[in-house]
Design a binder for these strands. Sequence first.
DNA 1: CATGACGGTTCTGGATCCAATAACGACCGA
DNA 2: TCGGTCGTTATTGGATCCAGAACCGTCATG
Lengths: 239, 239
Amino acid sequence: MSVGDVATSEATGHALVDEIAAKIRARIMSGDIPIGAQLRQAELASDFGVSRTPVREALRQLQAGGLIDVVPNRGAVVRVPSPWEVREAYEVRAELEALAAARCVSRVSRADIEKLHAANQAMYDRSLAENQPAREVALDSRRENDLFHNTITAVSANERLARTIDEINENFPRNVSAQLLVGDARHRDENYEEHSRIIEALERGDAETAQAEMRRHVLKAGEQLAQWYERRSSTVFKG
Amino acid sequence: MSVGDVATSEATGHALVDEIAAKIRARIMSGDIPIGAQLRQAELASDFGVSRTPVREALRQLQAGGLIDVVPNRGAVVRVPSPWEVREAYEVRAELEALAAARCVSRVSRADIEKLHAANQAMYDRSLAENQPAREVALDSRRENDLFHNTITAVSANERLARTIDEINENFPRNVSAQLLVGDARHRDENYEEHSRIIEALERGDAETAQAEMRRHVLKAGEQLAQWYERRSSTVFKG
DNA sequence: CATGACGGTTCTGGATCCAATAACGACCGA
DNA sequence: TCGGTCGTTATTGGATCCAGAACCGTCATG
């Protein structure tokens, strides 16, 4: 028996199954399990020290979320997004985040603005530090980028909106979009600029501009991600 | 082929679990299982003539979709949407359907326009026929209303967008929103008018108007649904 | 009379068992 | 040597079994 990390889950959601699902999702998101890889139930079960039953139920959840594909008698594989799927998804996400930004304007506080500034600046500064391992930089930058966007969705005060945006994001492993940000200097600079413009619009209380800028920003990020998937079929399929 | 032992063999790739999930979802959507009702695994299993295992996995899927709540050791209940949840969800749906309408403008064909007209007109005519049982009218009207909206999302040609809208709709049993449409004459008339304005905008190729009208239309429907949930806690909880 | 404890019952959740199906490989024949 | 067929094997999917937790009623007690 593995060490008891039980008693973690609260009222919402199931103890074990949701725990397992979260762990599998995390592994995929971090790139630990690459896209296209097969997910064997027995292996996952022994990894987590549980029976196959909760693993299967967790896989069903992930399937419903669209992160994995489950073929009838052939098991589950991590879904490999096609470029046009990425574009479609990001078009939706752009509209939703734009809505979030617009809703923000009437709700944002001074502290929120500071938080956004801080996250954006930290992300920018970090990517300038040359002496750190790229892996660490990518990880932290992703975290701060997430913080920026999550703050806006949180301030927009629509739980459903936040959930829907999350569901879209959960379909694309983050490690690739992370390395996109820090990999290219131009991307990094443009990202900083776009974030800044959004923050400015929020500060001015200009909902129209905030909405439009956010839409442009997300669409551009989606286009870059789609192009990445077009170029590289590597980082795919176990190995 | 072997003799039809389970009859699920059709449906490319659909496992039994998905079949079960669809059936349960259908029961909830039709109001056969009211919101708030408990879902007992053994009962469902014997209803469908299967073991509890696939039922459990199906419930996981529905849980991931947000249609039901699963409390740790107390089973699953059909989620009772609170009014503010409805408003939040419909604000998101409004933005998405508005996007769909805007995308439609450059893709809609003459045949599509006719289809929209036909669905809208049929729905209106049907609700005028007084001699039919309300139950039938509500069912068919819902079907045509769905056809109207589904046609637009289909023409908008973004699979992801369609999926996201569906996911939101699947959170609210349709029987209530259906009876809203046919129950009140004013609602019915306004609904017809709003649909007509959207079609006109699509015909003119006016993306701005189509988008705005669709947003208004969905928001209004959401508000009506939310108010319904505020007024009536009936039709809730088994019995 | 109300309230709290106790025990039986029911149901969920996880583990295990068994059947069915598809990938893999070896063998055989042309 | 290549192609097809058959048998093995590994893996999934469904059924069953067992333990643990929550509800319900009863009973005892302040």
